[in-house]
Design a protein around this nucleic acid. Structure first.
Lengths: 150, 150
DNA sequence: CATATTATTGAATAATATTCAATTATTTAT
DNA sequence: ATAAATAATTGAATATTATTCAATAATATG
């Protein structure tokens, strides 16, 4: 049997979805051509970045979720964007923010388990520029990506 | 002119999207019926929770993003789920995690600006059960919901 | 106030999803 | 190991939905 599920997950995680114009039209009690026109406009204006799926991450081997609060070295501190943009390529990282306060970078990271998280920290985050990491491990997710999980 | 854009945003933020089976089929070089069968299965098994849009939040009056690290009172500490589930109803909250470490709750909050964030903290988060809040304000988002923003 | 631009909409068409039935592959029980 | 049962793949037919187009209405602009 072909195992296309991981491939599906990969595609749907960022893309390969589209709005349901007719259902929206029915919900808002407007003609579907009006909805179509307005959504296309939101897309052209880049108000909408993409359409995607939200998963039960426990079921796709991403059940371990942690926030990594990061301090940068004094060299990287002045330009955190470089390191942040570089980190954005890792599929384990759900979000990256450059922040004010005690930590310069806040990452949300999803891995299969604590072991994989440890390896990710060791292999990816222990690098020149990152001098200190504080991990806040999620015991339970109640909401993610604006979607309730219960 | 009808202002249906906020209504569209509200619907698309959590729902009213669907996978593009034919495009996925072409990408993976598989018959579209095979893709259809497999995706329906992922939906039935609740591996996929929903399909949604990702926005340029600056363009939908949610340009201010902050992480709220929360300490609970000793009474709430033993059962943080109650308060977490209650908080999940607020559309300003993108994610809620019950965590280990120095803070029991980690919220990701999006508002129009700092003023609105202040009001949200004051009106929603300053409540019985929440004894201390540390805010990490995002200066720049590089990635959100697995989607690169540059 | 006249003109240009933008938004709305119904009807026609194009594109895509879904169903169905047949086949193939895999798992389970003996 | 083999038969029977179950699950997965697929092409062809159908149903559903998105998109285009042209006409009209609303709003903005000079």
């Amino acid at each position: 049997m072909k195992d296309i599920r991981p491939k599906l997950v990969k595609l749907l995680k960022e893309n390969y979805c589209t709005p349901q114009i007719l259902k929206i039209a029915k919900n808002l009690k407007e003609p579907s051509t009006t909805i179509h026109y307005n959504i296309k406009k939101l897309e052209e204006e880049k108000v909408i970045k993409t359409y995607k799926a939200v998963f039960d991450y426990k079921k796709i081997d991403e059940g371990f979720c942690s926030y990594a609060l990061i301090n940068l070295s004094s060299e990287e501190y002045v330009n955190p964007e470089k390191i942040a943009m570089d980190l954005s390529k890792y599929p384990e990282i759900e979000s990256i923010d450059i922040c004010t306060g005690d930590w310069e970078l806040v990452l949300k990271i999803r891995t299969k388990d604590q072991d994989e998280y440890y390896n990710f920290i060791k292999n990816v985050l222990s690098r020149k520029g990152i001098v200190k990491i504080k991990s806040l491990t999620s015991l339970k997710q109640l909401k993610t990506e604006f979607v309730k999980l219960f």
